[in-house]
Design a protein around this nucleic acid. Structure first.
Lengths: 168, 168
DNA sequence: CTCATATAGATGCGTTTACATCTAATTTGC
DNA sequence: GCAAATTAGATGTAAACGCATCTATATGAG
């Protein structure tokens, strides 16, 4: 496709299982994997995000929050949990939640025994909005991923990336 | 691992090769693949970017520009080419290049026969900086990707994602 | 040739981001 | 039980971002 060596100093001696660990440079395949993840994500994320905007809907990040809260159901979530599972910057999430609460998409309940925080739950309005967002979001995902030949390969690839996520 | 159905309406009838094309919702595996790409990218990108900053180095995006220009060598690049291959927003790239030119990392030459644009080349200083950035960037990539068992799987996964990129 | 359209890049502007810091509540060590 | 350290979340700030618009050049149709 293209030469993407990405910086020289390929320190992988093929065949050696050296778990040298400290200050190792990536192999060409490792780099290629990272580059493709990076480009694919940017392409998809921006496409979806700007299409949402074009349709008068809120940014993609809102979807993640709404969907996570929807899956938690009645027990809800704390902000710091959302932060960790959705990889939010604390301050960004704080401000985002404020906006979503102001718009009635999310409600905060003082039910908690920890008076520093509140429990967050999605409202009916929030669920409705998430579904509406999905109508433009969903097809884009399929549009980008739907070119993969067989379902098995698709599943394997997803599993591989999930494993990488879990290990770090 | 976790239920990540991500919005209901799974329109994939397994086994049918229906190329219905319009307004299709993603299968569960397609969604899972997207979710993992999204999370992995965010995690890695932010880790590297903030580590660069901690080491007094410029943001990750600078690396991409420097590396691309370095690979083009003497023939250089036009801004709009960089924009397409590195997925930059036009205005962001424009301002980024201005900064890099001001810092002497990139030079613009009027050699071109098109007086609207200039040809961009990396300078020696730019090459030096890129190499320095690689010393903190490279090990992170290996740190995230180096958990993959066999090289073959790694290569296949990268190829799969590259193919997805090319198809969109 | 000339006017309309397209392309390359710059710039104004409002929003979002990351980072540092702050307040308040909770947990821990002694 | 109390001071020190930790944790949850809010907020100020500068930089980066996406979008719309602008200038200048190039291309294309008649």
């Amino acid at each position: 496709m293209r030469n993407l060596t990405y910086g020289k100093k390929l320190s992988h001696k093929k065949g050696s299982k050296s778990q040298q660990s400290e200050v190792m440079y990536p192999s060409e395949n490792e780099t290629q994997l990272w580059v493709s993840i990076n480009l694919l994500q940017q392409k998809i994320y921006r496409t979806v995000d700007s299409d949402l905007k074009k349709n008068g809907l809120p940014p993609l990040r809102w979807y993640d929050v709404l969907w996570d809260l929807e899956r938690q159901g009645e027990k809800g979530r704390r902000a710091f949990e959302l932060e960790k599972t959705l990889l939010f910057e604390q301050s960004n999430l704080s401000r985002l939640l404020r906006k979503m609460i102001d718009e009635g998409l999310v409600e905060e309940l003082i039910v908690s025994e920890d008076r520093r925080s509140k429990t967050l739950k999605v409202t009916m309005k929030g669920i409705k909005l998430r579904k509406e967002m999905w109508r433009t979001y969903g097809p884009h995902i399929h549009g980008f991923m739907g070119h993969m030949e067989d379902e098995a390969k698709l599943e394997k690839t997803a599993a591989t990336l999930m494993a990488l996520l879990a290990q770090n």
